[in-house]
Amino acid sequence: MQRSILITAMALLFSCIVNATPEQDKKLFQKFYTDRFSDIPISEFSNGVYALDQDARDQWEATLDFPPYEYALEEGEELFDTPFRNGKNYASCFENGGINIRQNYPTFNRQRNTLITLELAINECRAENGENFLAYGKGEIAKISAYMASTSEGSIINIVTPTKGNGLADYKKGKQYFYTKRGQLNFSCANCHLQNAGRKVRSETLSTALGHPTHFPVYRMKWGGFGTLQRRIASCDAQVRAQPLLGQSETYKALEYFLTYMSNGLPINGPASRK
């Protein structure tokens, strides 16, 4: 009798975990970090590793008087404002002329039944106006995206909760990618950015996954330029000796969707600079 109650209770718990709604996932996800780093205000996680590592933060803050991305960001604004050959411009493709919308992406488009990231939307805008697609990870697209992010400074990430159909399926696909071990070195994203956030690998402190999408595209010294969130993710995949996926592949879009939904409620503070 007692035994069967125990089994029922365990079965219930298990089905809760497996069948948790995105909303429940998000609550638990955020609680994990706010419990573990109880002295850090949740909005601080938008600063990535600098929320956790004071030494690294001091070095970083010293560079902020003249942010290394300033020039590239200006180029992004110019590109954004430059009309296409047909006379139209990027603003014509987006809600609110493309200003202050970063916090709503990725968005699940119900009519088209597919996920749209901001970079995908930028390229679709180009295609609609007879221009060629840009490469997804860096260069022009990252500059334009960085400019668009900068117009969302302080706006709260507001991804609509996936509830059914392909939106929910994409969410689950992203969640699965986040928690699955991969590559010759056998790491999941969660191994590093959840389980071991705040600890050091060599001299690098591991950032929390909470807050990852708030400040992209990031200007990385190592890259000497801007890179999108998916470019950064691809380099983490390569680090664990897994085959990185293509930018805007269904799986990376799904992962970006999951990660960004987990950060709902945090302020946009991009673009940012990183080592």
Binding site: Q184, L185, N186, F187, N191, C192
Partner: peptide, 10 residues
């Protein structure tokens, strides 16, 4: 989190 050095031929 420790990689399986033998099993994965690292």
């Amino acid at each position: 989190i420790m990689p399986p050095f033998g099993k994965h031929y690292v």
